[in-house]
């Protein structure tokens, strides 16, 4: 028997697999397909104070071994999420979730965080300072040490729940930003959000995405994410939720060897709605194949010796 348990900021997970924000809605579409209680947890769709339509369409494009999206944080607003989505979710999911907190100002992040902090269903707050598809917010906070630290400290001050700060890879030095968040009170770091990218339609000679740019995700970014998790693991003491292109049980193990305590699965859910279920089911056999009996013992394992 192998042990897949891990602990993320004091909360135990039956396994490290966490569907990533924006690829799992508020859980309900997937709950129709399989019992989502098999998940470690999941991160809900990025949520702002007010409802948002997001960016104009087309807002999906394909990449080699991946996809681009410029959805731009479509969500019904935090009040509707708590009043309508969470009660429905409670019917199908018994575990605490990661509430993904978005905003366009420090005040908005704080206001959304306060509301989620009052929800029993929320185990962790995931502070999204890394969305590449909105202007005047999102990634804007995650590209400098000062602004990342400012919003981290402000949100930390209003929540009792563990605070995970989600970082963007679209920076010159992700390590310094991760350290700034740790110093400002972050309890964990999640990385990476999507990589800023674009496609051009040869027939129209125009960008495919109406927003021109979007975020690249999927297997194409896995080695990049793995490298950034490695670098951040060397620099911080707090746990890492590693994500970016993870599609298989082997990817989960590789991400943990690089330094991740828990592992997000994003774009894979959109291509294969059963991706997380499959990864979790196959994990014990893959662990055995590589001689792993206790999954948490391999966290950061590639750094030692």
């Amino acid at each position: 028997m192998v042990n897949t348990n891990v602990t993320l900021c004091g909360l135990e997970l039956a396994n490290p697999v966490i569907p990533a924000s924006g690829t799992f809605g508020y859980g309900l579409e997937f709950a129709k397909l399989y019992d989502i209680n098999c998940l470690g947890s999941f991160s809900c769709k990025g949520t702002t104070l007010e409802p948002r339509f997001g960016n104009p369409t087309p807002r999906i494009a394909e990449g080699n071994a991946g996809m681009l999206n410029s959805v731009g944080l479509q969500n019904p607003g935090v009040d509707a999420v708590i009043a309508e989505e969470f009660p429905k979710l409670a019917q199908v999911f018994r575990k605490p979730i990661l509430a993904n907190v978005c905003g366009f100002s420090v005040e908005e992040y704080v206001a959304v965080a306060r509301k989620f902090d009052a929800c029993d269903q929320v185990g962790w707050l995931e502070l999204n300072i890394s969305c590449p598809n909105v202007h005047g917010g999102g990634m804007g906070f995650g590209t400098s040490c000062d602004s990342a630290a400012e919003v981290t400290a402000a949100v930390k001050a209003v929540t009792k729940k563990p605070l995970i700060v989600k970082l963007t890879p679209n920076v010159t030095d992700i390590v310094s930003i991760a350290k700034a968040c740790e110093e400002a009170g972050a309890d964990a770091i999640s990385l990476i959000n999507t990589v800023l990218a674009m496609r051009i339609d040869l027939k129209t000679r125009k960008p495919v995405l109406r927003n021109i740019t979007g975020g690249l995700s999927g297997p194409a970014v896995f080695p990049l994410a793995l490298r950034m998790v490695w670098q951040v693991y060397e620099a911080v003491q707090i746990p890492i939720l590693g994500l970016g292109g993870v599609s298989t049980s082997e990817d989960v193990i590789e991400m943990m060897l690089s330094g991740a305590t828990a592992v997000g699965v994003g774009a894979a859910n959109l291509r294969d709605p059963f991706a997380c279920k499959r990864i979790i089911e196959q994990l014990p056999a893959v662990m055995e194949r590589y001689g792993i009996t206790d999954l948490k013992s391999i966290i950061g394992g590639a750094h030692h010796g």
């Binding site: 809605g25 579409e29 339509f53 369409t57 999906i60 494009a61 479509q74």
Partner: peptide
């Protein structure tokens, strides 16, 4: 018709605006 990501309601890629909201 729409350019879709997932096709089953998860990614919000193909949203349109309607009188009843997105």
């Amino acid at each position: 018709e729409a350019r879709m990501g997932c096709g089953f309601g998860a990614c919000m890629g193909c949203t349109i605006e309607t009188a009843d909201g997105p």
